[in-house]
Each structure stands twice: as structure tokens, then as C-alpha cells.
Design a protein around this nucleic acid. Structure first.
Length: 271
DNA sequence: AAGAGTCTCAACCGCCATTGT
DNA sequence: CACAATGGCGGTTGAGACTCT
């Protein structure tokens, strides 16, 4: 028998997240940082499993995420990296700032795969398909040629597996996310617009400075505007996870009792 | 206008790796 | 060292949006 499904408990909500749930999760994570995900829903007042919270945060709510379709440079980079790394989406995503593994995986499955097949490239092996499936445009042929060069180069340089590549720093340097037409993306999503607006940051329930928290722990002095921290690269959070975002962050919560409650409830295997 | 077919992507599931006891 | 708990990853699903007829 495998493990029990993590979210089959009574009262654990599934399905699409509501704006209110998002707000609670963001509020909690920005104030307290990431601790053990299992405890997050309890402490944040959510009827979700920790795994669901983590996914929602990493795939959708993280403030540093780009929105919109991958641009051409990003797509080419994904193809290049996929040729080297295979379906290791998290590794690929790590080289595309602001993109998630889920997003890249979806884009691959819905766009890139078809595109490659149309160009006569096997999306799995990156080898030319035995038979040309469709007619390739001149531009496609150009991409195809480039692609073959990459494959050849990879074979020579990396063999079948590799962790660090010369593409490490080759990702786009854009600081501004762009939409399909290369226009800068604001946050069209009403929730994100709201979150990024002063209104949200000034709300009493959201005003963590007013709550007497010291944000030096987050690498931002308390004199800095809270939005500065909000815009911090997510990776910065991860790097400090063990030290600054561990349970010690819950100094303003009675964490001992709160966590006990979580454990006592038998909320097991919910990652 | 409406029904059918297709596409997109957020979310879930199950497994594996890592960490803690 | 063994086991359990937790985090993370990749594959898959399904609801809603969109397009076509």
C-alpha cells in the first residue's frame, strides 16, 4: 500500500482558491515567512492542506512571478535546457527567473511540444523525427538548425546528464515581466493588483509593521517600506529559510500551543 | 445563438529524496 | 541504522475559456 492521500480528511477544502484564501495565505507568509507547510493552513486560518498552500504560493502567489506567456527568448531557453536536462522542470525553472516549473511544464506540453513536432523534432529526444510531419517555414528551419547545433554541442559538452550549464546566466535580464506582445505586465489579476496596491498594505490586518514585528529578520530594515520586502526575490527567502523563516519567526504567536494543536488534531501526512 | 470540440493552466496525486528522531 | 515526517518534483486531470461550425 502506498501512502494515504494527503488531503482526504474531512473539512479540507480542495479546488480553486478564492481571493480570500489567497489573501490569508499571502498575509500569513509575508508576516511570518515560510515555516513548516503543514502548519501553515492552521496558523493562517485556512481549510487547506499544507501541500496545497505551498503549491498555491510557489505557482501563483509569489510576488516575484512573471505572468503571461513565455517570450521567444525564454521559450528557446526552455527548449535548450530541456534538451540538456529532460523533464526536470524545476531545474529548468530555476534558470528562468520568475517562472515556475508548473508554468514551464504547461507551456511545454501545450505549445513547445506541438511546435517541435511541427518542425520535425522529437520533443522527447530532440532528434529529428523519422518522417517530416509538416512543412516547416524558413524561420522554423532556422530554429531547427540552431536546435541541432545545441544538441550536438550538448552531446560533446555534457553527455546525458548535467547540472550546471553555460546557460546559467544566459536567461533574460528583464526586470519587467512582459506579455505576449512584449508589453510590460502590470498585475492584471484583480487580486494581485489589490495586493500590490497601497490599500492592501495599509490594511490593519495586513499592516505588519503596526503589529510590532521587526523585519530586520527578513533582511530588510524596519525603516524600509514594506513593499520593498514584498518585492524581494523569492530566492532570498529560500536562502534564509532555515535561519530566519523557521519556527523562530513565530515569536509573536504562541507557537508551542498552536503547533501542538496542529499535531494533536492528527493532521498527518499532509505535505 | 448554441452546441461541439479544443485549448489552457491551476490544482491534485503519488512517488521519491531529504531530514529529524 | 531504521523509521517517520516533511518537502519537493513530475505526471495527470478537469473546469472554464475559447474557437469553430
Amino acid at each position: 500500500m502506498g501512502r494515504q492521500p494527503c488531503c482526504d480528511k474531512l473539512g479540507v477544502k480542495k479546488g480553486p482558491w478564492t481571493a480570500d484564501e489567497d489573501k490569508k495565505l499571502i498575509n500569513f507568509l509575508l508576516v511570518h515567512g515560510q515555516c513548516c507547510w503543514r502548519a501553515v493552513p492552521k496558523l493562517a486560518g485556512l481549510r487547506r492542506c499544507g501541500k496545497s498552500c505551498r503549491l498555491r504560493w510557489t505557482n501563483y502567489l509569489r510576488p516575484d512571478l512573471k505572468r503571461g506567456l513565455l517570450n521567444e527568448d525564454e521559450e528557446q531557453l526552455v527548449i535548450d535546457l530541456h534538451a540538456r536536462l529532460g523533464n526536470r522542470w524545476s531545474k529548468i525553472a530555476a534558470r528562468l527567473p520568475g517562472r515556475t516549473d508548473n508554468e514551464i511544464k504547461n507551456h511545454w506540453n501545450t505549445h513547445v511540444k506541438k511546435k517541435l513536432i511541427k518542425m520535425g523534432i522529437d520533443p522527447i529526444t530532440h532528434e529529428p523525427l523519422p518522417k517530416q510531419v509538416g512543412t516547416s517555414s524558413q524561420q522554423d528551419n532556422h530554429v531547427l538548425n540552431n536546435h541541432q547545433e545545441i544538441i550536438t554541442e550538448n552531446r560533446m559538452q555534457y553527455g546525458s546528464s548535467s547540472t550546471t550549464t553555460d546557460t546559467e546566466n544566459s536567461s533574460t535580464n528583464e526586470s519587467q515581466p512582459l506579455d505576449v506582445n512584449n508589453n510590460p505586465i502590470g498585475h492584471d489579476d484583480p487580486l494581485m493588483s489589490y495586493i500590490l496596491s497601497g490599500t492592501f498594505l495599509e490594511e490593519s490586518s495586513w499592516n505588519f509593521l503596526a503589529a510590532g514585528d521587526n523585519y530586520s529578520d527578513f533582511g530588510v530594515s524596519s525603516s524600509e517600506d514594506s513593499s520593498t520586502w514584498f518585492n524581494m526575490d523569492y530566492k532570498d527567502l529560500g536562502d534564509q529559510d532555515d535561519q530566519d523563516f523557521g519556527l523562530a519567526r513565530f515569536s509573536d504567536i504562541d507557537i508551542s500551543t498552536t503547533l501542538n494543536d496542529v499535531v494533536i488534531e492528527g493532521d498527518k501526512d499532509c505535505t
